[in-house]
Design a protein around this nucleic acid. Sequence first.
DNA 1: TAAGGAGTGCAATGCCATTGCAAAGTTTAG
DNA 2: CTAAACTTTGCAATGGCATTGCACTCCTTA
Lengths: 118, 118
Amino acid sequence: MRLLVLQYLMEQNRALSLNELEVLFENADKSTIFRTLKTFQENYLVHRINDGSGAIKYALCDDDCICSLEDNHIHFLCTKCEKTYCLKDTPIATPNLPNGFRANFANYLIEGICSTCT
Amino acid sequence: MRLLVLQYLMEQNRALSLNELEVLFENADKSTIFRTLKTFQENYLVHRINDGSGAIKYALCDDDCICSLEDNHIHFLCTKCEKTYCLKDTPIATPNLPNGFRANFANYLIEGICSTCT
DNA sequence: TAAGGAGTGCAATGCCATTGCAAAGTTTAG
DNA sequence: CTAAACTTTGCAATGGCATTGCACTCCTTA
């Protein structure tokens, strides 16, 4: 199962929800896939993205992703097809924070219409 | 109820969850507060913030907030006290998107430790 | 070949958002 | 003043998604 999920994630360039994977691997149970993704997270293979769609999305980490501020790319949620893209070529600078605020993690999410849904 | 909630929101400079308001106004029902906030949203008084904490947060809109890209300030979630701040003095530019991608809404969330929890 | 560990499925739980329905309160027209 | 119409509220139920306990199966290894 882990191999199948990992392979599928590698073939995609976007973030997938647990439910999408459930539908895809219909012979496997929800909880199996959940635990698969959990294992991946614990081993820094995937990171979670909360795109506000109600379902958490999972995407493969980059080689240099440490799942923190360093992994500072934008996620784009298409409100039409509900797909979430990792816009790794569109970096965004970490802004200066007010006094006393310390950042550990950042998540820049943009909602709109993706190129295939236009 | 609407007046009470609105007044309380105006006194805060941060985003509150439904649950926080429930606890605060314990004589009012969950659903009443929920519908109050829903009404506020429909009339562009508050906007919703998904800070990944599991609970949606609600914050008063600025006068010029049209609850879209224009309302492009950063939200800061303190992972210690779980409070969400609107960093209106820390604007962030909307980046250029790849070809064919059109943005309607943006949400920049930073997690870390706030100034009072440091 | 038996024992231990890993992976899986099922069912249950929990949390939060949301809604149907009826009761209570408020406004308005006569 | 009063009844009808509308609004607001509370309670209980529903639904979606994440998560977990438990038992069963499968695989590895001594």
